[in-house]
Every structure is written in C-alpha cells, then in structure tokens.
Deep mutational scan, measured.
Amino acid sequence: NRLGIIYEIQGMKAVVLTSEGEFLIIRRRKDMKVGQQVSFENEDIYNV
C-alpha cells in the first residue's frame, strides 16, 4: 500500500500528494475528500 493526501478531485480521478513529494493521479473512490489521507495500490495509479 502507498499513502497520499488528496489534493484535488476531477471526475473519476483524484490527484494525491505522496510523502515523497510526488503528485499522482489515482482512481477515485466515492468516500474520498480533499485533504484526506488515503492508501492506494500501484494498480490504482493512472499512467500519464
């Protein structure tokens, strides 16, 4: 599992900021809110 803070939500995608200072786009889940810490898997990351 990886951890990140939700920075922005766009439709079915969420932008998270990881503890390494990396911004990633992941698959959104219904319970996500901006500012929330979430765990996610590598499979949830969109390749940009």
Score class of each variant (00 low, 15 high):
residue 42 N to C: 11
residue 1 N to Y: 13
residue 18 T to R: 01
residue 20 E to L: 07
residue 31 D to L: 07
residue 17 L to C: 05
residue 11 G to R: 08
residue 27 R to H: 06
residue 31 D to I: 03
residue 16 V to P: 00
residue 16 V to K: 00
residue 9 I to D: 01
residue 13 K to L: 07
residue 11 G to Y: 08
residue 5 I to D: 02
residue 28 R to S: 15
residue 5 I to N: 04
residue 16 V to I: 11
residue 37 Q to E: 14
residue 19 S to A: 10
residue 2 R to A: 03
residue 3 L to S: 12
residue 26 I to Y: 00
residue 20 E to K: 03
residue 25 I to H: 06
residue 38 V to H: 05
residue 43 E to S: 04
residue 33 K to L: 05
residue 18 T to L: 04
residue 5 I to P: 00
residue 16 V to W: 00
residue 35 G to D: 03
residue 30 K to S: 15
residue 32 M to S: 05
residue 40 F to D: 01
residue 42 N to A: 06
residue 38 V to G: 01
residue 30 K to F: 05
residue 33 K to D: 05
residue 38 V to A: 05
residue 15 V to A: 09
residue 45 I to Y: 04
residue 47 N to I: 11
residue 4 G to C: 03
residue 32 M to R: 01
residue 31 D to M: 08
residue 20 E to Y: 06
residue 3 L to R: 10
residue 27 R to Y: 13
residue 33 K to G: 04
residue 15 V to C: 14
residue 30 K to H: 15
residue 28 R to V: 15
residue 17 L to V: 09
residue 7 Y to W: 14
residue 12 M to T: 14
residue 25 I to K: 05
residue 2 R to T: 06
residue 30 K to D: 15
residue 21 G to I: 01
residue 17 L to W: 12
residue 33 K to N: 07
residue 4 G to D: 02
residue 29 R to I: 09
residue 42 N to R: 06
residue 16 V to R: 00
residue 28 R to Y: 15
residue 8 E to R: 10
residue 8 E to T: 07
residue 19 S to I: 09
residue 34 V to L: 13
residue 31 D to H: 15
residue 29 R to N: 13
residue 41 E to T: 10
residue 27 R to V: 15
residue 33 K to F: 05
residue 22 E to V: 10
residue 7 Y to A: 10
residue 27 R to C: 15
residue 31 D to G: 14
residue 12 M to A: 13
residue 11 G to T: 04
residue 2 R to Y: 13
residue 35 G to H: 07
residue 47 N to D: 13
residue 11 G to N: 11
residue 41 E to H: 06
residue 43 E to I: 02
residue 5 I to F: 11
residue 39 S to V: 11
residue 37 Q to S: 13
residue 13 K to N: 08
residue 31 D to R: 08
residue 21 G to R: 02
residue 35 G to F: 04
residue 15 V to R: 12
residue 39 S to N: 12
residue 39 S to H: 10
residue 47 N to T: 10
residue 37 Q to P: 10
residue 5 I to V: 13
residue 28 R to D: 04
residue 47 N to Y: 05
residue 46 Y to W: 08
residue 16 V to F: 01
residue 22 E to T: 09
residue 9 I to E: 02
residue 42 N to S: 08
residue 26 I to R: 00
residue 21 G to C: 12
residue 23 F to L: 13
residue 32 M to Q: 09
residue 48 V to E: 13
residue 26 I to K: 00
